[in-house]
Every structure is written in structure tokens, then in C-alpha cells.
């Protein structure tokens, strides 16, 4: 009997302890949760409401239009063009960034003298203001006075004017953004590489696997969760590209860089149509959730160590 009482008492103490732990944990995450609630979820709820109205920031709430804004998005040629621009941008940027980040990570994860400096150099663009970087790259790309033209000029060449060309403007922005963000992905990959136990490589070496085989059959599979994280976050980030478009091309020329978030901004702030802008935002949200779901399905790693 006394043993049963003692067990119950111990369980109660345990529960109390668990509750205390939860309470402490909750206190720690409470500021972040409040931040999310106030600055993310409440605005999202308001945006959802706005998408059902003829809403503008200046004029306030107009008529309730139900799905009109969503139907309009499907019928809007410029929205479709902008969506396609964002998709092209993501397709161009994400694989390039992942590839460069992986190569850089393989290089900088080696513990040799001076590698810390190289890692810092690779990471510097990440901490540079995106607006400043975009302005600097605009100058570098300038057809007449840019650094790129100076380099080409040595060989007697002239570039076609990257940012004023509907063919080259988007690739030029992709290159700039890969430079800007590759450092962050590199650091994540380095963390992933450091987490792979060396015994796998030792065992593979004993079995006669060469460097390439070790990379293909050990490193790459074990980096799948990291790769998944990078691909998903970078795809989401790429679909939301705005600042370089705003600074470097304003969506032009001829909609060549009119990414969807820039078009949403134009509708919300230039065309005083925040209801329609909100509807397009939810369309993008749904698209990104779907894309992320399939990326998880495709890249989900079943390799554990």
C-alpha cells in the first residue's frame, strides 16, 4: 500500500516537474510567439479579410467582393507573367546557389590555416545590406561605366547593357543574388558536413572507395536533410524576391524582371488596390506551400546516422 502511495506521489511530483518545465519553456518562447502573433498572424488574418474586399490603404474598406479578387488574378495577364518571372528566377537561382554553396562548403570545411579568413570573405555579402549590394551591382553592370565593361573593354568587347536588356536583366539579378546569399547556404552545408561521422569515410576507404565514390555514396545522401532545408528555404525566398527588382530594374524592361512580389507591391501601393494585392499574396502562399510539400516529398532523406 505504501509503495502504491509513494509511486502516485512520485508521479504527481513528476507531473508537477513537467508542468514547471513546460511553464519555463513557455515563458522563454512567449516573446517569440507574441511577435509571430502580432506581426505575422494578425496581419495575415487582416490580409485574408482584405482579399475579400475592395480595400485600399487610403480609402479603407470598400465593397465586399467575395472571390472577385482571386478570379481577377487568374484572368490577369500581368500577374501570370510576373508569376512566371518569379518561377524563372527561382529555377535559375536555387540550383545555382545550392551547387556553389556545396562546392564552397567542401572547400572551406577543410581545417587548414587561413580557412577562417576565406569563410569570412564568403560570408561578408550575407551581412551586407541588400539595398547597398543592389546599388553597387547596378553600377558594376552599367553599360558605359561599369566594372564589368571595364574588364570586357580590355579585350575590346562591349556588353549589351545587362539591366536594360529584357534577355539579360533577370540572369544578371540571379548572379547578384547568388553572390549575396551563397554564404548563408555554405555555412549550413559546412555544419552538415561537420556532422557526418568520419568513421563512414574510414570504412569506405578500407573498402577501396575513392574520393568521388565517398562523396556520391556517403556525403551526398547524408546531406539530404540539409539540402532539403536549403532548397525549401531558398525557393520560398526566391519566390519572394523584391529588393533587387525594386532597386535595379523596377520590374522592367518589358516585364522581364517584374517578379510577382513586385507586382503585388505595385498593386498595393501604386495602384491603390490592396484587396487585389492581398488576394495575389494568398495565391502565392498557397503555391509556396504546395511547392514546399512536393520538395519535402522528393528530398526527404531516409538515411540516418
Amino acid at each position: 500500500m505504501s509503495a502504491v502511495v509513494a509511486a502516485r506521489s512520485a508521479r504527481r511530483r513528476l507531473l508537477t516537474l513537467q508542468r514547471r518545465r513546460y511553464l519555463v519553456a513557455l515563458l522563454f518562447v512567449l516573446p517569440a510567439l507574441l511577435n509571430f502573433l502580432v506581426f505575422r498572424y494578425i496581419p495575415m488574418a487582416l490580409a485574408a479579410q482584405a482579399s475579400l474586399y475592395d480595400y485600399s490603404l487610403l480609402a479603407g474598406w470598400g465593397d465586399f467582393v467575395l472571390w472577385k479578387n482571386f478570379v481577377r488574378a487568374f484572368e490577369d495577364d500581368i500577374f501570370r507573367t510576373s508569376l512566371w518571372v518569379s518561377i524563372k528566377y527561382a529555377i535559375g537561382k536555387v540550383p545555382l546557389q545550392v551547387l556553389f554553396a556545396l562546392l564552397l562548403a567542401l572547400f572551406v570545411s577543410r581545417e587548414v590555416r587561413g580557412m577562417g579568413v576565406i569563410r569570412t570573405i564568403i560570408f561578408i555579402p550575407v551581412v551586407t545590406s541588400l539595398v547597398v549590394a543592389a546599388l553597387l551591382w547596378s553600377m558594376m553592370y552599367n553599360k558605359d561605366l561599369g566594372l564589368l565593361q571595364s574588364l570586357l573593354g580590355v579585350f575590346g568587347l562591349r556588353h549589351p547593357g545587362l539591366l536594360s536588356s529584357s534577355t539579360w536583366a533577370l540572369p544578371a539579378i540571379v548572379v547578384m543574388m547568388v553572390w549575396k546569399e551563397v554564404g548563408f547556404s555554405t555555412i549550413i552545408f559546412v555544419a552538415g558536413l561537420k556532422g557526418i561521422p568520419t568513421m563512414f569515410y574510414d570504412a569506405a576507404a578500407i573498402d577501396g572507395a575513392n574520393r568521388l565514390q565517398q562523396f556520391l555514396y556517403i556525403t551526398l545522401p547524408l546531406l539530404k536533410p540539409i539540402t532539403l532545408f536549403i532548397v525549401v528555404t531558398q525557393t520560398i525566398s526566391a519566390m519572394q524576391v523584391f529588393v533587387p527588382i525594386f532597386v535595379m530594374t523596377q520590374g522592367g524592361p518589358f516585364f522581364a524582371t517584374n517578379a510577382v512580389v513586385y507586382y503585388i507591391y505595385q498593386n498595393g501601393f501604386h495602384y491603390n488596390d490592396m484587396g487585389y494585392a492581398s488576394a495575389m499574396s494568398f495565391f502565392i502562399l498557397a503555391l509556396l506551400v504546395t511547392v514546399a510539400y512536393f520538395q519535402f516529398k522528393l528530398l526527404k532523406g531516409n538515411v540516418e546516422y
Binding site: 547593357g161 536594360s164 523596377q250 520590374g251 522592367g252 524592361p253 518589358f254 501604386h270 491603390n272
Partner: peptide, 16 residues
């Protein structure tokens, strides 16, 4: 505001 937003796009296209 609407007109000027479109005008910026138009001018960019005239130039390029």
C-alpha cells in the same frame, strides 16, 4: 498615383 506608376514602366520601356 496609378498613372505615374504606369508612366515609370512606360518610360523605362521607351528608353530600353
Amino acid at each position: 498615383t496609378e498613372y505615374n506608376g504606369l508612366m515609370q514602366e512606360f518610360v523605362g520601356n521607351l528608353v530600353a
